[in-house]
Design a protein around this nucleic acid. Sequence first.
RNA 1: CGGGGUGUAGCUCAGUAUGGUUAGAGUACCUGGUUUGGGACCAGGGGGCCGAAGGUUCGAGUCCUUUCACCCCGACCA
Length: 566
Amino acid sequence: MRRSKAFIPTTKEAPSDGQLASHIFLSRGGFVSQVASGLYNYMPLGKRVIKKIENIINEEMQLADAQEVELSFVTPADLWQESGRIEKFGKELLRFRDRKENLFVLGPTHEEMMVDMVRNRITSYKQLPINLYQIKTKFRDEARPRFGLMRGREFIMKDGYSFHSSQEDLNREFDAMESAYKKILIRLGLDFRIVEADSGAIGGTGSKELMVLAQSGEDTIAVCDTCEYGANVEAAKRSGRSSIPEAPVADFNKFKTPNIKSIEDLENFFKVDAYYTIKCVAKRVIYEEESEIVLFFLRGCDNLQEVKAVNAAGALDIADLSEEELQEIGLIPGFIGPLEQDKAKHVIDNDLINAVNMICGANEEDYHYVNVDMSVLGEAYYADIAEVNEGDICPCCNGKLSFTKGIEVGHIFKLGTTYSKALKAEYLDENGKAQPFIMGTYGMGVSRLVAAIIEQHHDENGCIWTKEAAPYMVNIMISNIKDTEQVELAEELYAKLQEAGVETVLDDRKDRFGFKMKDAELIGFPYTVIIGKELANGLVQIYERKSGENSSISKELVFSQIMKFV
RNA sequence: CGGGGUGUAGCUCAGUAUGGUUAGAGUACCUGGUUUGGGACCAGGGGGCCGAAGGUUCGAGUCCUUUCACCCCGACCA
């Protein structure tokens, strides 16, 4: 492409709403432009990068025997009724009616549609397994789109669904998809981690997220410093703590604790580590039809992990509540304890099973119990509801956990029969008996990957594209367009590279050296061939964007050198 | 959905407290010339319903009311 003819509107100035490097540079570099909140146009460079990523996905999916399809973007609301997700998804579903007043939904993900396509067409176990996927625009009416392509409302996603006649076969496919996804991210040059995750509203087990490591990531993940274990904090487990403080010595007693309401107050008052205190986090737990107050008890040094809490309560959601609401049911905020009290449902963290030497609220104004032995509770409801802390011991080895931030670019999980049952999608097994499909689902955010690559690969001057994702591999920069010798060599090299199948831009604009170099750095071509004043000595330079290194080479050798690099 | 902020040239922003020539700057763009190794210089030029609607006033970018859009923090997020 001749730069003089290319539609690549770069700007010196960052958009006023740019927060992240990816947003700023993709916008300044002329890759994307915003049209409304969470909606973006892809300009030529952006479109090329999208295609690069799609091609890699397609190649790896083919190797894994997955078949590409394309489902209608507009989906009948009936299907969403059938699966029950029209309520679950809520306002994120963009709904509208056609001229005949039929209700439709813009697809935010396509489980229902894919199941609908397969049901009554795949009818025998002999036709299984099958893995179908598409790369398609999705729409979720996010409450708050942000960070450019990272969290848009309209976005491009690869979503795949597999159908099986046994759990074992699903497990096999799941592993195959995990390794295919790994390959894709490796090819894109990303530093990532596969972590255990919560499966969210879709339901299912064996949920894993592919996280690109970046400080700007929206997810916090716990990783082990010794083994491969990694998990979203929403799901992270621990086997213990790196150190357990010395236990306080006391007899069981009810103790006057005037106005001592917080864990911090207790620590100071009793001179005891928060580990030996019991914290009560009261929440309103919301179910499909009703809601109730639930008391979550944990060690004072831990925090409630809300996703775990929702799962433990078998709820749809949880919400904060006020002190007044607690008082209404006879609880005294600051002094709530799990003993001799059944004003609301209790969920107690696993780490408190048989815990001893504990201090907890006495359910009486200004009183706490000391030296509580939790085993006196007998049969209580225990669950894992605490968020792991940095320094906790890995559940898989003896390493320590630490936190890092990640961008979720992929999510795979085993759906089981959630959708096939709801939508009555069945096949006949060996015995001629109808069975619901056992399903897996595999998602990868294509447009989000564009942003994730830049989050991980940029510097203060702009984008640094990895080779497999770069919109163009080589930029040939003519320093002085009036120098016919420079122009001739550039044209010759341009023709040769194009013939060799190397995606090349020829910067034949009339601008000056500095301007064109800044522009090349902003766009982030992996290589720029500088044809300039050194040509008088028979030399040109190859500038490598990643290292910033500029190496001189004779004009005769530049073509073969470039071919070696790409 | 709660809290806060911003809408003026393609882009980044002044101007709005205190209403008063023809609404400004930088940058980008067009023409001509100079320049050509790190976002050049000179000269000339085009580009605006000041987010929208209503109101107050002799007069509104500026004051009042309504509304829309976008951004930030939070809630939310397969």
